[in-house]
Every structure is written in structure tokens, then in C-alpha cells.
């Protein structure tokens, strides 16, 4: 059975944004790197249809959370790099906080016996 790309169908709106911001906290990266970093970081659970990354990048840049510049990649190719802006850093903190809260809340509901 074909696995559906999770990012497309099941991930919550805004989750992808958060993952991108988190990836960029380590330093500037271009789209290809970001896509693979997310896949690897999730131990291949989050299969990204890499294309969906670009509209998200566009949206984040539009909101001023990331900024972009053209640079040269590790194997000497031209690539568009993204870096986190201070506003993006703040946004990441907010979103991570909210996410943790939600995960705890859902966890309490799903495993009440553990108490």
C-alpha cells in the first residue's frame, strides 16, 4: 500500500511552519536541505512531498519570520538560503510552547490510567 505523504494530509495546519522554523534554528539552509532534515529528524516518519515546502517557505517569508538570500551550496551550486529572523525566533518559541501544551493535554486524555 502506498504511504500517503503525511505533510499533505494529516499534519495540523501550522505544524510544517514550526518544523521549518525549528530546522533553521541551527543556521541558514536551502529548501532541499530543509526537506531532508525534516525527514531525517523524524526518522522518516514524516514523509514530505518536498514541493509543499515551497509555498510554506513563501508564506513564512511573507510574514517576516524568515528571510532569504541567494548563496552557493556545499557542492558549489546556486541555491536560495533561508535564515531565521528575530521575529521568527519568537514565533518558534510561541508555537513550541503551544505544541507542548497540546501534546500534554492530549496525552492526559489518552492515558488517564498512568496517573
Amino acid at each position: 500500500m502506498r504511504r500517503k505523504p503525511l505533510l499533505q494530509s494529516e499534519m495540523l495546519q501550522g505544524t510544517l511552519d514550526m518544523l521549518i522554523l525549528q530546522t533553521l534554528i541551527l543556521g541558514p539552509a536551502h529548501g532541499h536541505t530543509i526537506a531532508h532534515a525534516i525527514e531525517r529528524g523524524s526518522e522518516e516518519v514524516l514523509q514530505v512531498e518536498h514541493g509543499s515546502l515551497y509555498p510554506a517557505l513563501h508564506r513564512l517569508e511573507d510574514r517576516g519570520w524568515i528571510a532569504s538570500f541567494w548563496g552557493t551550496s556545499e557542492n558549489n551550486r546556486k541555491a536560495r538560503y533561508y535564515r531565521l529572523t528575530p521575529a521568527g525566533r519568537k514565533q518558534l518559541a510561541v508555537q513550541t510552547g503551544r505544541w507542548d501544551q497540546m501534546v500534554r493535554a492530549i496525552g492526559r486524555i489518552l492515558r488517564p490510567a498512568a496517573e
Binding site: 536551502h30 529548501g31 532541499h32 518536498h50 515551497y54 551550496s73 551550486r77 546556486k78 541555491a79 536560495r80
Partner: peptide, 20 residues
């Protein structure tokens, strides 16, 4: 302009992925 910009970016992605 933005359309062209993104197209170039996607082109760059394809090259990178192909060479990988």
C-alpha cells in the same frame, strides 16, 4: 518576478536532489 524566483529555486532543488 516572484514567480520566476520560485521557479529558479525549484529548479535548484531538482538539481540538488538529482545529484544526491
Amino acid at each position: 518576478h516572484w514567480d520566476e524566483e520560485r521557479s529558479r529555486e525549484i529548479e535548484a532543488y531538482l538539481e540538488a536532489e538529482t545529484s544526491d
